[in-house]
Design a protein around this nucleic acid. Structure first.
Lengths: 164, 164
DNA sequence: GGAATAAATGAATAAATATACTTACTTATG
DNA sequence: CATAAGTAAGTATATTTATTCATTTATTCC
């Protein structure tokens, strides 16, 4: 049917502009545009369109078109600067301060970013220093363990850390 | 709890390597790793981790970590208020970690700087991440409230915050 | 045009997922 | 220390979503 395509387009348009949190809401919205279909059809449509239902930052579910999903990171196509540019690592509070050879902080930061460690909320880098913010609930040891599995030769640089 | 973090990490690891198509399968897989939890808990975990359930190319559903979702096409329509470049905001300790679209962190930081919020001691920005240091005595809520009065549309991005 | 085949859809239902409510336990606070 | 406040997680259930099955509607190919 021609109207199927129309409906799919309408769905995409709706999901682009409105916050729709389930198929029921979508069905109602479609009605406003003159599309009368059952939930079953919408389920099939969403499967076809690869729409995802994801919780957003405020903890509400939303139907999201695939291209609108926030890739946080990890997809950055920068060559991985080896972590052996790191010269030291220290902790203070929930901050990890990492020193590198001059000029390498950004490279190291983006390498670490690309690993997308759950324990790290975010990072910023200057010239020879970068900082990571540890996630609340994640311990230094959690982070260190994770790091070592990725880059075992860092062991010498990583300070002895207690689990807090 | 410590074990919650461990479980979250395990979930992420499993979803990275295996094809998991529903919470039931995830629950079974977790058992192999010694994690015994109910479906309800996994539902909460997936919400927290922003895992999506999407149909893949062969029409099977899969649980997918946010950063693994393929952006196929289409570009998000960005408005030109600088703060609309913000994609997420998280807190850890006295640090606010703000993510932006690539390249916009500095712009956003200087916009925020220009507001001269009392609650913010200072900021640093990288490429797509900036950090604000909260003033001692100022709560997250203080900051969030202040921010919302400036930029109400940020509400969607700002996490639910308790007053500490 | 009409039989054969495929596609689209709804109704009913199965399956999967989210959540209200409760309990145990941990962490702050006076 | 005691009480409050917060967090984690299970149970039971409500809600949401996917699918099976039947029917209708379109498409293909003589």
């Amino acid at each position: 049917m021609e109207s199927k395509t129309k409906r799919l387009i309408a769905i995409r348009k709706i999901l682009e502009t409105d916050k729709i949190n389930n198929q029921d809401a979508l069905q109602k919205k479609l009605k406003e545009f003159g599309f009368y279909y059952t939930q079953a059809t919408l389920s099939r449509d969403l499967k076809f369109l690869k729409v995802a239902k994801i919780a957003d930052v405020i903890g509400e579910y939303r139907l999201v078109l695939p291209e609108f999903i926030n890739k946080t990171e990890g997809v950055r196509v920068e060559k991985n600067i080896p972590l052996d540019k790191i010269t030291s690592m220290e902790f203070s509070g929930n901050i990890v301060v990492i020193r590198t050879f001059p000029g390498y902080a950004n490279g190291v930061a983006s390498t670490l970013d690309s690993y997308n460690f759950y324990e790290i909320v975010g990072s910023v880098a200057g010239d020879d220093t970068l900082m990571l913010v540890l996630r609340e609930g994640s311990s230094r040891l959690d982070f260190v363990n994770r790091l070592i599995t990725k880059e075992p030769n860092l062991k010498e640089i990583i300070p002895v850390v207690k689990n807090y």
